[in-house]
Amino acid sequence: MKEGTPIQGKERLEWVDTARGLAILGIFMVNVPAFNAPFFLYGGGEEYFPSATSDAVRAIIDIFFQASFYTLFSLMFGFGLQMMKDRLVQKGTAYEAVLRRRLFVLFLFGVFHAFVIWHGDILLTYSVLGTLVILFMKRKDRTVLAWAYGLLLAVTVPFTLMLYAARNYGLEYINRDGIEAAMTNYGNGSLLDIWSQNTADWWYTNSPGNWPFLIMSMLPMMLFGMYIARKRWLHEPERHEATLWKWWSITGLLFFLFKLGPYFFGTPAWFDMAQDNVGGSASAVFYVLSVTLLYKSAGKALIRPLRWVGRMSLSNYIFQSVISFVAFYSVGLGWYGNVTPLQSVLFVFVVFSGQIIISRWWLSRYRFGPLEWVWRTATYGRKV
């Protein structure tokens, strides 16, 4: 058997790297409010920052970012696994062993990130769901697509109907004990206090009862990514331009209806799951297709710098958490609980602008980002 090798620069799809860079920006935009205060996890942000500006910023993030970019990254994750599998098969390499090593190394990254740096980690979740994606590698396209739609609808439709039926019983929830504990431990605690709170918060969102929801909301996007890679829509966008425009229109309409639509009837809590699962999934595909189509126009220059961040997506994702840890927690600058939604957005753009500059500088000297190099070396069992 031939040994697999990582993808080379000349083989890269630049618009796919750009979409990954956009995903890193979007994830950061949602993560920073969750990193600098407990309200994203436990509710109550409207009480703590009760201003029209804060409400407007929260609405913008909810419409254009929330549930749009971890789904986009899930799609890119499935797309990348399928691409890697295809390349390994082409080279005569047994792909399952390589993919499982890759996912195991990602799992180790995720464990460190989740429990040492930040409870909102997605790497651990992706590594676990990635093992399920491998089970679909030998399935037909129709089977992959049926499972993707089926899982997404199986959780969204019944739970939205249940929440609608219970709409008069007070679905809004604020965990004041959770808010107080987070404020104390993250805002004034020792490093051990921070890690203890971090573990508690991770368990709050990753308990066994929540995993079916994680699987049924994120696995479908990975399967959609697999399907798109198989159809080579993003490999050969000129050839599939009519298809790209068709799905751009469909997902754009769903994006508008499910993400913006609720704001025309008071953003009811019972509609949250449909808004995130349908609207978020549609917006993820819409963003990817928008980047791909824009790349074939004069607008390419506006988004092209994102490709540097996308090529180092793992390193940049972890770096965002490290700098947030230092900025917001008591062992660093101690800004926890004191950053308004608008200041949070400004923080994101300042840090992300720096990431574009640093990523470009790094990639002008090295083939891979630092953590990408570790990941690939561990995956292939040799220096790359």
Results as ranks from 00 to 15, higher is better:
W247H: 07
R139I: 06
P370T: 08
R311H: 03
V16E: 04
L333E: 07
L253I: 13
M83A: 11
W202C: 03
V345W: 07
L99P: 02
Y173A: 11
R382E: 15
A229C: 03
A52S: 12
A229M: 00
F328I: 07
V57W: 01
G209P: 10
F28E: 03
F286E: 12
K140M: 06
V32S: 08
V322T: 02
L293Y: 00
E96C: 09
I358F: 15
F79D: 06
T292H: 02
I357L: 15
Y70A: 14
A94L: 12
A148S: 14
K231P: 04
S359P: 04
F109N: 05
G354V: 05
I122N: 02
T131F: 09
S207Q: 12
S330G: 07
F115M: 01
Q197W: 00
D193E: 07
G280Q: 04
E180M: 09
L88I: 07
L293K: 01
G261W: 04
W375S: 13
Y366P: 08
I24L: 05
G120R: 03
S51Q: 00
G44V: 05
G369Y: 07
L260M: 13
I174F: 14
I318E: 00
K246S: 10
L161K: 00
S51F: 04
F107N: 07
T160I: 00
V128M: 11
S68M: 02
A148M: 02
G334T: 14
S281Y: 12
L106R: 11
F112M: 04
N36R: 09
G261P: 05
E236F: 14
F325P: 01
K85A: 15
F159R: 14
R365I: 13
E47N: 10
T71Y: 14
G189R: 02
L294A: 13
Y317C: 07
K10A: 10
A56T: 12
K300Q: 12
S297L: 02
W202Q: 00
Q343D: 14
E372V: 12
I174Y: 12
S321L: 09
M162G: 08
V116D: 02
L25T: 00
Y336C: 13
F213T: 09
L81Q: 13
I174R: 12
S54E: 01
L257D: 04
G261E: 04
N277F: 15
R365V: 08
F35V: 07
S315Y: 11
Y164L: 00
A378D: 13
L124H: 01
R176C: 09
N338V: 11
G334M: 13
R58A: 15
I24Q: 02
S196P: 06
G310D: 12
P50N: 01
L192M: 14
G261H: 04
A301L: 05
V278T: 15
K383P: 06
M1F: 11
V98S: 13
G44T: 03
F368K: 00
L253K: 08
L253E: 08
Q8W: 06
M183N: 14
I356S: 10
F79T: 06
S283A: 15
A181W: 08
L25K: 01
T18G: 06
Y204L: 11
T131W: 11
S321P: 07
S297T: 15
P208Y: 07
N206A: 12
F35Y: 14
S313A: 15
W247P: 02
L129P: 13
A166G: 09
G354Q: 05
M273S: 11
Y287L: 08
S217P: 03
S207Y: 09
A229P: 01
F264H: 06
